[in-house]
């Protein structure tokens, strides 16, 4: 694909006898929201881990924005514009929401070997942080400490932090995990708002959300891609139905 922002070529990752990524080939076009679905243990989070740089693949290459990032450390990928959120909420527990996001802004505002000035008073960090909180729908909770926030707000903060790094592309690992129906629909709305500006790779179990948001869907089973295409073709795919979707009643309602 000519305008692919992310290209994954023949990615292989084994854990002992388990093949978590089995020759994964995938292009994500600039501006597209690409969802990856699959049953538990299909290797979705392992794939994100390899894209983010936390897990080293056994074979294969990853290109981002025309650059081979296969060997790049985690922080450099973030600096290149590849942001991510975590399946299990991963925040700075003793900071406020704003401080969490400001730290993400700071990471992309030059080096941090600045030893003297009070970072909490720097408008250069606070203003973009507030903007990111706003985009994630959390501006009213800016000064609340993470410990005092609900699970749903934690998920929003996850997203706000990723946004604050001004990514070209977001890797979202189950952003709806543990959310109630209301919170879920709010998150879908938020993601829909981000969709045009950002390229998104979304891993999600909530089929309603996936079919509402995705431009393309890839189905992963036992580390192997069994189908990839637009939502309609995925819904119609017999193999997908058998392997995965058939068990999920939710699909019938989409």
């Amino acid at each position: 694909m000519a305008d692919a922002l992310l290209t994954i070529e023949g990615l292989i990752k084994r854990f002992g006898g388990v093949v978590a990524s089995d020759n994964v080939l995938l292009d994500v076009a600039r501006g597209e929201l690409h969802a990856i679905i699959g049953p538990n243990g299909a290797g979705k989070t392992t794939l994100i881990g390899q894209l983010a740089g936390e897990i080293v693949p056994d074979a294969g290459r990853i290109h981002f924005g025309g650059r081979d990032i296969t060997a790049l450390p985690v922080h450099d990928r973030s600096l290149l514009g590849l942001g991510r959120t975590f399946q299990i909420t991963s925040l700075f527990a003793n900071f406020t929401a704003l401080e969490n996001v400001a730290l993400a802004v700071q990471a992309h505002a030059g080096h941090s070997f600045r030893f003297w000035q009070d970072a909490r008073k720097e408008a250069e960090l606070r203003e973009p942080a507030r903007a990111a909180l706003d985009r994630a729908g959390l501006s009213h909770r800016a000064d609340t400490s993470v410990a005092g926030m609900s699970h749903g707000e934690h998920r929003q903060l996850e997203l706000a932090m990723a946004l604050a790094t001004r990514p070209q592309m977001l890797l979202l690992d189950e952003p709806m995990a543990g959310l109630g129906p209301d919170e879920s629909s709010r998150m879908v709305k938020t993601l829909r708002g981000l969709k045009r500006d950002l390229t998104i790779l979304l891993i999600e179990h909530d089929m309603g959300a996936v079919f509402a948001l995705a431009d393309r869907i890839t189905v992963l089973v036992y580390g192997r891609i069994i189908a990839s295409g637009d939502p309609a073709s995925i819904r119609a795919n017999a193999e997908v139905r058998q392997a995965y979707l058939g068990e999920q009643e939710a699909v019938a309602h989409v």
Partner: peptide, 29 residues
């Protein structure tokens, strides 16, 4: 006191709190 409240200090405290996240948002911790 100045150090821990500076940008440098934020990185140090962030790393204590959650080093994995620090790397994910772009810090060479």
């Amino acid at each position: 006191w100045r150090l821990v409240n500076s940008r440098f200090g934020m990185v140090i405290q962030g790393a204590r709190s959650n080093e994995r996240r620090m790397r994910a948002i772009g810090f060479p911790v």
